[in-house]
Design a protein around this nucleic acid. Structure first.
Length: 429
RNA sequence: GGAGAGGUGGCUGAGUGGUCGAAAGCGGCGGUCUUGAAAACCGUUGAGGGUUCAUAGCCCUCCGGGGGUUCGAAUCCCUCCCUCUCCGCCA
């Protein structure tokens, strides 16, 4: 959500910022509706002032036992005009809110312009893709050959885009999540959270999935939504709060299932477990001081990259271009892991700085501490979220990168303690 | 699911139709005292919005959300959400 005062004060800058997103100029409409709102509001307030004065005098007269009928008649006479002004103000205000709530965040200055993911820019890469002396397979072929990954029976009970992992592969998924949580909590200072997986409308409004992207989500028949990412509950930890400045940043992590309808992805990634309706992810969220959010963004991205290095998985880090950056983000880094079976890099983490965009929507603020002089009051925090990492896709990467010609899989050393010391997944196990 | 009790400022908690944005305490901030600190004492301290060059004044709103009654609502009514207690069910 944007600060209406910014749009009012600098409509050209606002329209220019939206143009980078391919959004038509909206400032004129917003300003017009807002002017209408303020005009009606001012009128209603003036009438209210008068009414308050009269009511007070009525009370005084009545307490003295005098007649107040003339004043009461005067109040009654002004009622319709005030009601009309209030209704006009509310209607215009609702229109402003509706329009504003569907406008994406403004992009950071150093986000490159571009149309789609082809215009994303590589910032750095780590690790050399391994050379195979055989044709590396994709994870689903490997998993099915091991007898530990079953798409057919999953489809039978749940439909397309679900998978059943069994035995050592199920264990591996758990191990990967445990490993990630241990690193993020013990080494990088994130507080582990076990959040609700079902949330209300307003929580999703706060993070920006609603009102525009409800089609991407699953909804229960009593009106709750299944979370598409733990970003939703973790960021909403700060919703409605007025935090102390000294408590920032708050850093939360959670491993949760994520549920996505993938409504717009039909035909895309239909094979394997790259794109599922349900997947596990370790999420990182920071509630940060506005002056520190850019720094926190770099830190968070590093926290995600560190996982890949320890798992010996080659990756590259991209900054998303204007056309590929999500609704709530002002700047996003994607981390892409090398998948030998596919022969390309695939997204495994997305780390975004949302600035105050989500904070405004969910009223997450902090109170500046001492030394702030006249800048009293409250300020919106900045919110950041990132995958640290997507567990399902990490499982895929471990399988494809660790595979041997016989279909067995060598596990990264870092995971072996989480697998009872096991070094290899092979068909006989 | 059934029955009941509640939701008040950063926190605890008074207030049942007018002078209540709201007592008191805690916390915070400023000061006195002190070599310094603590204690004690004094003062101060909510949020959002409109108007405005103004983070000066003035005004409006906010006592869980929304709606209603009334000249006037934190106080009365309706509704939704949430919390707690007892019963039932249950991982």
């Amino acid at each position: 959500m944007h600060d209406i005062r910014w749009i009012r004060d600098d409509p050209e800058a606002f329209d220019a910022a939206m143009a980078r997103r391919g959004v038509e100029p909206l400032s004129a409409r917003v300003i017009e509706m807002d002017a209408k709102r303020r005009e009606a509001q001012t009128e209603a307030q003036e009438l209210q002032t008068r009414r308050n004065e009269l009511s007070k005098r009525i009370g005084q007269l009545k307490s003295k036992g005098e007649d107040a009928q003339a004043l009461m008649d005067e109040v009654a006479a002004g009622k319709d005009a005030q009601a009309a002004a209030e209704a006009a103000a509310k209607e215009a205000g609702d229109q402003v809110d509706e329009l504003l709530s569907g406008i994406p965040n403004a992009l950071d200055a150093d986000v490159p312009d571009g149309a789609d993911e082809d215009d994303n820019r590589e910032l750095r890469a780590w690790g050399e893709p391994r050379q195979f002396d055989f044709d590396p397979k994709e994870h689903d072929d490997l998993g099915e050959a091991l007898g530990l990954m079953d798409f057919e029976r999953a489809a039978g009970m749940s439909g397309a885009r679900f998978v059943i992992l069994t035995g050592a592969l199920a264990r591996l998924e758990r191990a990967i999540g445990d490993f990630m949580l241990d690193i993020q909590t013990q080494e990088f200072g994130y507080t582990e959270v076990s959040p609700p997986l079902l949330v209300r409308d307003h929580a999703l409004f706060g993070t920006g999935q609603l009102p525009k992207f409800g089609d991407d989500l699953f909804k229960t028949d009593e009106g709750r939504w299944m979370i598409p990412t733990a970003e939703v509950p973790l960021t909403n930890m700060a919703a409605g709060e007025i935090l102390d400045e000294e408590d920032l940043p708050l850093r939360y992590t959670a491993r949760t299932p994520c549920f996505r309808s993938e409504a717009g992805a039909s035909g895309k990634d239909t094979k394997g477990m790259i794109r599922q309706h349900q997947f596990t992810k370790v999420e990182l969220v920071s509630i940060a001081h506005p002056d520190k959010s850019a720094e926190e963004h770099e830190r968070m991205t590093e926290c995600a990259e560190a996982i890949l290095r320890r798992l010996e998985l080659p990756y590259r880090t991209m900054v998303l271009c204007s056309g590929d950056t999500g609704f709530s983000a002002r700047k996003t880094y994607d981390i892409e892991v090398w998948l030998p079976g596919q022969g390309r890099y695939r997204e495994i983490s997305s780390c975004s700085n949302c600035g105050d965009f989500q904070a405004r929507r969910m009223k997450a603020r902090y109170r500046p501490g001492e030394g702030q002089g006249k800048n009293k009051g409250t300020w919106f925090v900045h919110t950041l979220n990132g995958s640290g990492l997507a567990v399902g896709r990490t499982l895929i990467a471990v399988m494809e990168n660790g595979q041997r010609k016989d279909g067995s899989i060598v596990l990264p050393q870092a995971l072996q303690p989480y697998m009872n010391g096991r070094e290899v997944l092979s068909p006989d196990a």
